[in-house]
Design a binder for these strands. Structure first.
Length: 284
DNA sequence: CCCCAGTCCTGCGGGC
DNA sequence: TGCCCGCAGGACTGGG
């Protein structure tokens, strides 16, 4: 499931479309339930064709193509979406295509097995309304210890659940939340409003460390094999997971406890009961 | 406002 | 071996 490192890898994989002009856009033939594309294809085509792509950005877990004139195309992969420049895993799940004018790469695609993702073209105004303001917190890579603490310290939620809230911090998902809290040595069920200042600093440092290393490895491809980079290659960070999907295995940090799986807010959380303690017990 | 449970969707794996 | 159910968790919504 694409989170910040996977989406950042997608972004880097299509960075070379900057400066290219869009020749055509459209849905790919697909027998499954169609993904959300907005606005209608006729309006989408009218506003995209002939425009030059001026930048490829990432906003939390979305890839953003900036077009000359102010519109943006937003690719939102959600669970199983991919941005591909070549060699799709299969053609049945190709959902959307962008053709480019001129010399070089001719097309790139949005592929999505489960179809929960979307492709949207937004004006500057729509962009500000739907993705700006308080809709999304600061990007996890742009976080400071203070901004993290300011946004979450008053919450009564458990820290693992709060880290998934994109209005608090943008980019962290279920997999990396577990990995971050393990590296920080914080129990996932610790209430935000009971975390000391030093804990926020550890969470902040762990967030940067985990996400940056995961980007270096081009994200995590889990056993279902869904996530691929723009060239349909697997990521490598799954080989560095310390707790995620590793219930019953010995914690690689302490070698004293097995990794535990629990459910928080209907999602799986993995942690080490020795490395990640709650409250006072850890105070030397 | 804050938070949780339910919803969308497809493919896979466990259990019988 | 085959079938069916439950699970995976992005983001959004409805309601307490």
């Amino acid at each position: 499931m694409p989170e910040l490192p996977e989406v950042e890898t997608m972004r880097r994989g299509i960075l070379h479309v900057v400066g290219r002009k869009i020749a055509e856009v459209g849905r790919e033939p697909c027998k499954l339930r169609p993904i959300e594309v907005r606005p209608t294809m006729a309006a989408f085509r009218k506003r995209a064709v002939g425009r030059t792509i001026t930048a490829v950005n990432r906003l939390g877990k979305r890839v953003v193509l900036r077009l000359e004139g102010g519109d943006s195309i937003i690719f939102e992969p959600r669970m199983t979406g991919l941005v591909l420049v070549a060699d799709p895993p299969d053609i049945e799940h190709l959902r959307f295509r962008v053709d480019l004018a001129g010399k070089g790469m001719r097309s790139f695609w949005f592929w999505d097995r489960r179809g929960l993702g979307s492709v949207r073209l937004l004006s500057e105004e729509q962009f500000a309304t739907e993705l700006g303001g308080d809709k999304l917190g600061p990007d996890a890579l742009a976080l400071t210890p203070e901004s993290l603490r300011e946004r979450l310290a008053a919450s009564r939620r458990e820290i693992k659940v709060a880290l998934l809230d994109q209005r608090a911090v943008a980019g962290i998902g279920n997999l990396y939340a577990s990995e971050i809290l393990h590296l920080a040595g914080i129990h996932p069920a610790h209430r935000c409003d009971r975390l000391p200042r030093a804990a926020w600093e550890r969470i902040h440092a762990a967030t940067l460390q985990v996400l940056e290393l995961a980007i270096l490895h081009e994200g995590s491809t889990l056993s279902d094999g869904t996530y691929r980079n723009a060239l349909n290659q697997s990521g490598g960070y799954q080989n560095h997971h310390r707790v995620y999907d590793r219930a019953g295995y010995l914690c690689p940090t302490c070698s004293a406890s097995e990794v535990i799986r629990v459910v928080q807010a209907q999602r799986a959380t993995f942690y080490c009961p020795t490395c990640q303690t709650k409250g006072r017990s850890k105070r030397r």
